[in-house]
Write a protein that binds this DNA or RNA. Structure first.
Lengths: 351, 351
DNA sequence: GCTTACTTTGTAACTAGTTACTGAAACTAG
DNA sequence: CTAGTTTCAGTAACTAGTTACAAAGTAAGC
């Protein structure tokens, strides 16, 4: 096992002091000749500076901590890509932790991030870490909370969120425009974002003369509960003599499960039931699923910038969702491809 | 901005030396009474030890570096989840970098990982970093290369890969079993994994009396090139009087694009053309796409273990792919759901 | 030629921890 | 009651860097 060269080895090799080497590396006042000798020694010894030691002196590391609830969602994926983009542009790295929706992990991983003295922390969870994140903010670590309502962001933290009420409104207007009236909702629970989306949906539907009763909203915490939730909505519609003609899913995480539950029952989309869900994803085009898209990449970019730029006061950013109309609500507009996929030219080459 | 408590502050508060605090924190010989006083001081001052300083002394940090070529692939996602699992179980964190398939980023990010003195490095790329990873291995940092052939793994590195020849063979046998004979391949280029998959496919097809000519394999580096590649395969089949009846995609990254190119031309799957591709994904069930699955989560787990357990010699692990038969090749077997999605019970509640 | 000013470099103290060594109690044994 | 051993805590040196300050060297001005 070969020992790594230290700044002292470089100094000895170049015949200067460690202070001079440090100055060459970080751009202090040095002679051209000295700098050349030092750089030659750096190359000869394959010296790689120790970022940990630098971090000790600077009081913080150069990495951006990101704690994600659920790495499997395309929303979070694009978010991370945005953060990583900013990190790479600032000689920084993303330190990633996935909580798998477990509170104990979340606490442990945010703590580890704190121990690592991350230059900033971006959290998409923040359910059990308010105390710690508040303290980190006090200690000068910019903390950004994502996808939680502005209203309940912990003090001292920046907040990046979606206009969830608007997301619900877009769904309502679109479904009504497609002639649907008996609407059921699959929601993932008590998170503020979920509540706001449902509230926005309900208010807009009411404005359109389509009330959304409490029991038309079913909660499914996990994918396993989706099937039962869909059943309950179907039964409810049948019992009232208003057969369900639309299902709204308020979280991208459950899109696959809701879609599977529908098709497993032989339900045609949009023939029997219209379907709208949250968050755009690569396969949505192929499946013709209409979605409410979040600008996730841009949100990641902004989150990264808040960490790097360290604005003085807490910043609150609310992004606006957009409706991507495909065919799952029976609309007759042109198809909208998932951004990033290639253009699909018409070809005369059908065999 | 509140200054963080240091070990010195804790020592002063508890009326002991820093050495004693360190012993309490790391489990040395101390009196019960002293330990209590120290822990009280830790709680009172909300002391969070500085992992950077610890890392300086230990010679390395406690984080696992992961450099990913393309974060959008579900394969890499599951891989990261596996690594993160091991990391979390070892009070470690994953330091993630996405290269976006750009070599300059890869070099910069592996370098940054080295500077961060990661306790181990897991790379899925390794195209331009052989020199550095070799040196890191010499310096005692376990380096794992994933998804590259064992044959060309850089010296000193562990290697985790898939039996790509077997993956190709599985595709060949399955397509032949479904009665397909005019097969076209969309490959993503010159990576060893791609070459091996194609070679395995070709050899197995030849054994079945179905030669795969060179020009039946089209390379598409990016999603934008897929459409043209599919066109070329269709033209080739038409010109020879052997209309294409199957398309193989040797990389999961291009699955969406190939599927989109097919459907955009009005081609029915499997009616007109059968379709097999690499890597299972959540929507594959809904779309009925037959795939060759890699045990990506297990591969991540193993990669993490190699970093944590630091075996002496270089380890080479080859995982076996499995065929997940759905409907895209015209097979008449039962549907196989994507693991992790809920069971889909038959329901009498179709409206 | 001497003073002043500026540039360049080295010394030593600093970051926040860990640990080898040392000495003082406390406990056990004869 | 003393000697030997063990336990516990402190001092100081160490990790790999950065930087304040001082010293030395060089150039310009008088």
């Amino acid at each position: 096992m070969v020992k790594r060269a230290t700044i002292g080895d470089v100094a000895a090799d170049a015949g200067v002091s460690t202070a001079t080497v440090s100055r060459v590396l970080n751009g202090g006042a040095v002679t051209e000749a000295t700098a050349t000798r030092v750089w030659e020694a750096v190359a000869r010894l394959e010296y790689t500076p120790n970022a940990l030691t630098r971090g000790v002196f600077a009081g913080r590391s150069s990495t951006i901590g990101v704690v994600i609830r659920d790495l499997s969602s395309p929303f979070y994926l694009d978010l991370i890509r945005g953060i990583d983009e900013v990190a790479a542009a600032n000689d920084s790295l993303v330190m990633l932790a996935n909580t798998f929706r477990r509170v104990d992990r979340e606490v442990a991983q945010v703590r580890t991030m704190d121990e690592q003295r991350v230059r900033g922390l971006i959290v998409t969870t923040g359910e059990a870490t308010d105390g710690r994140t508040r303290r980190m903010a006090e200690n000068g670590t910019p903390c950004v909370i994502i996808a939680r309502s502005v209203l309940d962001a912990p003090p001292g933290m920046h907040s990046i969120s979606l206009d969830n009420v608007e997301a619900g409104r877009l769904m309502a207007v679109h479904l009504a425009g497609c002639g649907r009236s008996s609407i059921g909702v699959v929601s993932s629970g008590r998170r503020t974002s979920q509540i706001e989306r449902t509230a926005g949906l309900r208010r807009a539907l009411a404005d359109l003369g389509l009330p959304l009763p409490e029991d038309a909203v079913m909660v499914a915490e996990t994918e396993d509960e989706v099937s039962g939730a869909v059943d309950a909505l179907l039964i409810r519609g049948r019992d009232r003599g208003e057969p369900l003609d639309a299902i709204v899913c308020t979280t991208g995480r459950l899109t696959v499960a809701v879609h599977a539950a529908l098709t497993a029952r032989g339900i045609a989309i949009p023939g029997d039931i219209a379907f709208v869900t949250m968050d755009d994803f690569p396969w949505a085009t192929a499946l013709g699923i209409t979605v409410i898209a979040q600008p996730s990449y841009q949100m990641g970019l902004k989150a990264g910038e808040l960490v790097v730029d360290r604005p003085s006061g807490p910043v609150e950013l609310v992004f606006t969702p957009t409706l991507v109309a495909r065919t799952s609500c029976g609309e007759r507009q042109g198809l909208i491809p998932y951004p990033g996929s290639s253009a699909l030219p018409e070809s005369p080459l059908v065999p």
